[in-house]
C-alpha cells in the first residue's frame, strides 16, 4: 500500500523526505561498509532487494474477493536487519515507481518512512521480543510479518490523514476514514502475510539452514557447531 504519485502537497513531500533521509543514509552507510568488508555480500543484498521486489508480485487472496500483495519488508528485516532494509526498500520503491507505476517519486519519502523504516523496525521488534521470550520461531516470524504490514498501513493512513484533514471531523475523522477504507484489504493481508512468512520460514529452515545461520537468523545445529 503506497501513496500514489502527486498525492501529497509539496510541503509534506519535502518533510517526509527530510524525516526519512537520516535512516536511508544510515542504511546506505551500513551497506557500503558491508560491501567493502565482504564484496561478495553485494550480490546477496541485491538478491534480497530483487526478492523483495518480486515478492510484491505474488498475489494473496483478500477478504473483499480481490487480491493484494505482501510488502516483504518484515521478512527482510528478520533476515537482514532494519537498517539495511531502509536502503533496500528505497531502491525497491524507486523501482516500483518507475517500473510498475506503483507509488511515486514525490511521495517516495513518505512511502520509505512507512514501508522502509517503520514497518521493518516494528517487525524486527516483534521478532526480537519473541526470541527474548523464547517463543517458537514460527510465532516470532508470524508476528514480525503481520505487524510490519499493519504498522506500514497505519502509518500510511496517518500520513494521508495529516495531509487531508476532514472538513467536518478534522484529523481524527480523516484518520478513521483512511484506516477504515484500507482495513478491508490490509488487515486480512497482514494476517495472510504472517501465515505466508511462516510457510516460507519453515521451508527455508529445512532447505537453507546454513544460509540462515550465516545471516545470524538461526543458531548453528549442535553437530554444525562442533564441526
Amino acid at each position: 500500500m503506497h501513496i500514489a504519485e502527486g498525492f501529497l502537497p509539496v510541503t509534506h513531500c519535502v518533510a517526509w523526505y527530510a524525516v526519512s533521509a537520516p535512516f536511508v543514509i544510515h542504511g546506505a552507510r551500513r551497506v557500503i561498509a558491508e560491501s567493502r568488508e565482504h564484496p561478495e555480500s553485494r550480490l546477496l543484498l541485491a538478491a534480497a532487494g530483487a526478492f523483495t521486489f518480486v515478492l510484491s508480485s505474488i498475489k494473496l487472496p483478500s477478504v473483499t474477493g480481490s487480491s493484494s500483495h505482501p510488502t516483504g519488508t518484515g521478512l527482510g528485516a528478520v533476515l537482514f536487519g532494519p537498517p539495511v532494509m531502509a536502503f533496500l526498500s528505497s531502491v525497491v520503491l524507486i523501482f516500483q515507481a518507475l517500473l510498475l507505476a506503483h507509488g511515486g517519486i514525490t511521495t517516495l519519502g513518505a512511502n520509505v518512512f512507512s514501508m522502509g523504516i517503520v514497518g521493518p523496525w516494528v517487525g524486527y521488534a516483534f521478532w526480537v521480543l519473541a526470541k527474548r521470550l523464547r517463543w517458537n520461531a514460527n510465532v516470532g516470524v508470524f508476528l514480525a510479518l503481520a505487524f510490519a504490514d499493519l504498522s506500514t498501513y497505519c502509518v500510511t493512513s496517518a500520513q494521508l490523514a495529516i495531509a487531508f484533514p476532514d472538513p467536518v471531523s478534522g484529523l481524527a475523522g480523516s484518520l478513521a476514514k483512511f484506516l477504515g477504507v484500507f482495513a478491508l484489504t490490509q488487515v486480512p493481508l497482514a494476517l495472510a502475510e504472517g501465515v505466508l512468512g511462516v510457510l516460507v520460514f519453515r521451508l527455508l529452515r529445512d532447505v537453507a539452514h546454513p544460509e540462515l545461520v550465516k545471516l545470524g537468523v538461526l543458531k548453528p545445529r549442535a553437530n554444525q557447531a562442533v564441526a
Partner: peptide, 13 residues
C-alpha cells in the same frame, strides 16, 4: 504462495 516465495528466495540466493 508460500511455496512459490520460498522457491524464489532460494533461486535468488
Amino acid at each position: 504462495a508460500g511455496m512459490g516465495a520460498s522457491a524464489l528466495f532460494l533461486r535468488a540466493w
